[in-house]
Amino acid sequence: MLKQRILTASVLGLPALALVAWGPNWVVLLLVSLILGLATWEWAGLAGLRGASARGLLVAGVVIPVLALGASPIGALHYLILGLVLLWWLVVLLILPFYREREVDEKANRGHLFALAAIVALVPAGMSLVWLHALVPLLVVYLVVLVGLADTGAYFAGKTFGRNPLAPHISPGKTREGLFGGLVTVLAFAIVGAAIWGLEPMDALVFLLLSVLIGLVSVVGDLFESILKREAGEKDSGSLLPGHGGILDRFDSMVAAAPVFLAGLLWLALIPAPPAAA
């Protein structure tokens, strides 16, 4: 399984990161839209939308706004969406501890709500990635690697030291020790990143704290997708990525991390904020 994960990440992940690092913004917009389209198709299945037309409609409801937002100048609408999605993830964080699996009939009643949640969560994530790429492409690469390392560090720390469940009603395999291991890995990577970029001491400290926060936020996105899978009775969102599961299984942490990372960078003035177009 581990060999499969490494092989898949090497064959697909490295070329994608190279494209993000050196490709034009419009190509990255198309790449992000493709990934989101596949992830939304899987999300629709988890939400109980079985027909191709219904799933396709949800895909269009995510991809078309992402394309429109990514192709247009940064304006007040972009900032509004970014602000609203921060509130969304805050609400998700607050309700996660109270989640309990429901009966089958109650799950069916909530399917359309989960489908709507795809638009609320995925559109801002795609917008944020394209927006950040237009400002500093290498920060998108940094974010992708950071989220991946948070997951990897948590996996190995959890396997080695895991004793106390983090969210037993949502994802019994995740542990507090794994979370701590992931955050330590993120901190180490952030120190390297701050050194490479030559940040001043105060900016470096803020950058480290923001990176650790993103490590935490990525877990929120992961747990939210775990709820979707638990409600659907599925282990993975799909099977497109050998050793990893589906596209959504690899993108779930990024869904929460991308808008929070962008907002943090802008608010802390670590990157220049473009003026909102009229």
Rank of each mutant, 00 (worst) to 15 (best):
L113Q: 10
A71H: 08
K3Y: 10
L17I: 13
S237K: 08
V28E: 11
A9D: 01
W22H: 15
V92S: 03
G83M: 14
G173P: 08
L223K: 01
A167F: 10
S72N: 10
A167V: 00
V123R: 11
A68V: 12
L31T: 03
L248Y: 05
L30S: 07
A71D: 11
N25L: 07
L31A: 04
L146Y: 15
K229W: 12
E231N: 09
I35P: 00
D222V: 05
L82A: 05
W88Y: 11
V217D: 08
V141H: 13
R110S: 15
L262T: 09
P259G: 05
L166T: 04
L187N: 03
F98T: 14
G215I: 14
L29C: 02
V220L: 10
I247R: 00
L205Y: 13
I64R: 03
V62W: 06
S33N: 00
A167T: 10
L129E: 01
T152Q: 05
A194D: 00
M254K: 11
L216H: 14
A60Y: 00
A258T: 08
G243A: 13
L2D: 02
L80W: 11
G45T: 00
G45V: 03
G238Q: 08
L82K: 04
L116Q: 08
L266N: 07
D236H: 04
E234Q: 04
L146F: 15
V220W: 02
N164A: 10
E101V: 05
V141F: 12
I191T: 01
G13Q: 09
L34W: 13
P275K: 13
G182I: 02
A154M: 02
W131I: 14
A269P: 06
G173I: 06
L93A: 11
L12E: 09
T40V: 05
L240F: 12
S128C: 02
K174C: 03
W22V: 15
G61K: 02
L2H: 02
L213H: 09
P274H: 06
A76V: 15
G178E: 10
L210W: 11
I247L: 11
D222A: 05
V255A: 08
G158E: 12
S53R: 13
L135F: 11
P137V: 14
L187Y: 05
G51A: 08
L213S: 15
E103R: 06
K235R: 00
F251G: 06
A232G: 01
P24S: 13
V145C: 02
A273H: 04
I196L: 15
V28L: 12
G221W: 04
V206C: 09
L82R: 01
E42S: 04
A256N: 10
G23N: 05
G178Q: 12
W88F: 07
A9V: 07
Q4S: 15
I191F: 11
M1F: 12
V63F: 03
A68S: 13
L209D: 10
W88M: 09
A125S: 14
